[in-house]
Design a binder for these strands. Structure first.
Length: 271
DNA sequence: TTAAGTGTTGCTCT
DNA sequence: AAGAGCAACACTTA
């Protein structure tokens, strides 16, 4: 689940609950999520610190500590943040828990251990090392910058949208939604898209991500709040297309399952 | 067995 | 020939 809209929700959640609170203790539920640091050293580094602000790039969430270092979060395929007072509410798959001095806790809940947490000194260096492209919602990424990113791409549009080094934040779910809304087949070659089609795709991408954020991405309620014309609530094989009532199909694209409507998103060429 | 994440490997194409 | 694109597989849990 955690793609750009979801991680943006987690960022706001952290902002609303956990900033400026002194970290009294740290509990490492499973050290497999730690990258580049041991549980013992992370505990030492965090104890007595507080998180002062957050940042996000694509699917990565960053929390600045009051000593200038950054705590980094990536949620993998499953996960969320959970803030609570009673340890009775500690999630089952709590992999890292910060215990604040006011008695509250913030947990990194990550069922499959694909999530990652790290501690870094230099945010720009981290982003460079991860080869992250511009965030898909970055204000400076306008339609011309978007077109420039796509310029010269040889592959399919879905693979390009999900390429984190090209554009950070879009995963399988939102790539499908964006392409459905843009009426583009996932296998459409980037080079076959006209300037006008790229502009339309850009606007669609921004709208879909914005709508998802505004309507509660990362929460269970999202599917109930999305517009009736969205694919996401119908994202299963054999489901009925919310636009034309045709049948939703799946294909493998760039190693991932793509859900799409063959009628609304016709193949660019025959084969 | 499949899944919303990334990383690595090794092949093909240009 | 180097680099891009892409598929297969690995990791992990339910």
């Amino acid at each position: 689940m955690p793609e750009l809209p979801d991680v943006e929700s987690f960022k706001r959640y952290l902002d609303a609950t956990s900033l400026h609170k002194k970290i009294k203790n740290v509990h490492v539920g499973n050290a497999k999520v730690l990258r580049g640091i041991s549980g013992r050293r992370l505990k030492e580094a965090l104890r007595g610190r507080s998180m002062e602000e957050t940042s996000r790039r694509g699917k990565h969430l960053f929390a600045a500590l009051d000593d200038g270092r950054w705590l980094t979060f990536h949620f993998g395929m499953t996960g969320r943040l959970a803030y609570f007072k009673s340890l009775d509410d500690d999630p089952e798959h709590d992999r890292l828990r910060l215990d604040f001095d006011d008695g509250y806790h913030l947990a990194f809940d990550n069922q499959r251990l694909f999530g990652r947490i790290g501690l870094i000194d230099d945010l720009d260096a981290f982003i460079a090392s991860q080869e992250l492209g511009p965030d898909a919602m970055d204000f400076s990424l306008d339609q011309d910058a978007f077109a420039k990113l796509m310029d010269g791409k040889q592959g399919g549009i879905k693979a390009a949208l999900m390429d984190q080094s090209l554009l950070a934040g879009i995963g399988n779910i939102y790539a499908d939604e964006i392409l459905f809304q843009a009426k583009l087949h996932p296998d459409t070659r980037v080079q076959d898209l006209s300037t006008d089609a790229l502009r339309k795709l850009y606007r669609t991408m921004r709208r879909v991500l914005r709508v998802a954020i505004d309507r509660g991405a990362g929460s269970e309620e999202l599917v109930d709040r999305l517009p009736k014309t969205y694919l996401l609530p119908h994202r299963e094989a054999g489901a009925s297309c919310p636009r034309c009532k045709g049948t939703i199909k799946t294909i493998k694209t760039a190693g991932r399952t793509s859900y799409y409507c063959p009628r609304c998103q016709p193949k660019p060429r025959g084969d």
